[in-house]
Design a protein around this nucleic acid. Sequence first.
DNA 1: TGAGCATATAACTATGTAGTTATATTGTCA
DNA 2: TGACAATATAACTACATAGTTATATGCTCA
Lengths: 111, 111
Amino acid sequence: MPRPNHQNMSPEALALVATRFKILAEPVRLQILQHLETGESSVTDITNSVRSTQPNISKHLKILQDEGLVARRQDGNTVYYRIADESVFELCEVVCGSLKVKFAERSAMFG
Amino acid sequence: MPRPNHQNMSPEALALVATRFKILAEPVRLQILQHLETGESSVTDITNSVRSTQPNISKHLKILQDEGLVARRQDGNTVYYRIADESVFELCEVVCGSLKVKFAERSAMFG
DNA sequence: TGAGCATATAACTATGTAGTTATATTGTCA
DNA sequence: TGACAATATAACTACATAGTTATATGCTCA
């Protein structure tokens, strides 16, 4: 199905899109985002939820914040992170739908 | 904005979602997919369009095919690839919308 | 059959980054 | 102020993979 009226993106623009996908291409970061879907959470709570080490979680949170996907709020000694870009959930839903089809097809290959 | 009624995905499922994002996290692969958006294309044509080497394009095409994003058709000496999963374009649109907002916000930081 | 073309694969190098351990920073409270 | 707690950073290791070069595979046609 050709799409003649489509405006192509430049390689540079596509590289920025690829960067966004790369940010989302880490299981731990997806776990963090899923955890934050229920609301703001401290680094300690995220660390316990995701079952990784605190420095690793902090590093991932910094990556997510630099990309604008989460936001930071400090209250005393504790730092709270929250979702800053809801589009990540839309992306995950689209991927889940696609994966469901993909695995259903492959499952059907065995009768 | 908490979402109490949301069913969490297992870490294993999230890992599969992350894998899909990883496939899309390479600029050359996005260029290939964009090229194929206009219709089926041979490896040679893709190689010329994306301006990479033929072995590199073949490798990326194999990765895209294994993930079910493109399909392969051989006609004599020539192999044609086509889009097999249209969801990739929906994903790119969502990302583009998010990036537009992100860069607009950062641009606004400078008045 | 043999030459030539299109595509795929193998072997290799270089680079990016996730995770770990150790430590620094910053805030609270006695 | 000093001890402790929460978070961030630095230095390092291990591993995955993009790209390259060389070569293999497989098809067509004279």
